[in-house]
């Protein structure tokens, strides 16, 4: 890993921290306010690729674990990891990795714009939603004793918001790809 990749990883982790400081956005048609930080996984995979994206999130989780209040709302510390949603936090790195793999596979230069949008959206949905829930929900079920089926049904309520996040991440990732492409330079 060269120094530039190391710096990109650190800068992206720092961006994710800042996304947690931005006040959550409330949208008229969805009851839960959207925290910009939860788009970080999708953005990391789509913008800096699988390996660097996953490492950025490992670094971010390290920040949480050593007691920095980097999660949105100023939360952090080992208590959050020990709580019911710890699996989602630990799953971020894997989710970013899968997002990045799909984005690297499907996005190429000189494609029509619509293909690129489609690729980023697919990567965000599969990595940032499917993979993340596949780790977070069983974990939550194991830790809290809530039967898996009930936990899975309950998390369906968050899917519309997550799809919206994937759409925003897609547009942002494509904007960054057009302005300053980093995805093709693989670490």
């Amino acid at each position: 890993m060269n120094t530039r990749d190391l710096v990109l990883i650190a800068l992206f982790a720092a961006i994710v921290v800042v996304l947690g400081l931005i006040p959550p956005i409330t949208l008229g048609f969805i009851p839960v306010p959207i925290t910009a930080q939860s788009m970080g996984v999708m953005l990391a995979g789509c913008i800096i690729g699988a390996k660097r994206g996953a490492l950025a999130f490992l670094l971010f989780v390290l920040l949480v674990a050593i007691g920095l209040p980097v999660l949105s709302g100023g939360r952090g510390g080992l208590a959050v990891l020990a709580g019911p949603s710890g699996g989602f936090i630990l799953g971020w790195a894997v989710a970013a990795y899968v997002t990045g793999l799909i984005a690297e596979r499907f996005i190429h230069e000189g494609q029509p714009e619509s293909r690129q949008f489609g690729g980023f959206f697919l990567a965000s949905v599969v990595g940032g939603i499917v993979v993340l829930y596949a780790i977070g929900v069983p974990w939550l079920s194991a830790v809290t004793g809530t039967p898996l089926l009930a936990a899975a049904t309950g998390s369906l309520a968050f899917i519309p918001g997550d799809l919206l996040k994937a759409a925003i991440a897609t547009l942002a990732a494509r904007a960054v790809y057009a302005g300053y492409p980093l995805l093709p330079v693989r670490a």
């Binding site: 710096v7 800068l11 992206f12 980093l182």
Partner: peptide
């Protein structure tokens, strides 16, 4: 103030610094 119009410029402006920071470290 929309997340979309903020996140794009924020990420591009930040990651563009990577080269100078890496050069400074090296």
């Amino acid at each position: 103030i929309r997340p979309l119009t903020i996140i794009g410029p924020l990420i591009i402006l930040t990651l563009k610094d990577a080269d100078t920071i890496a050069a400074a470290i090296d």
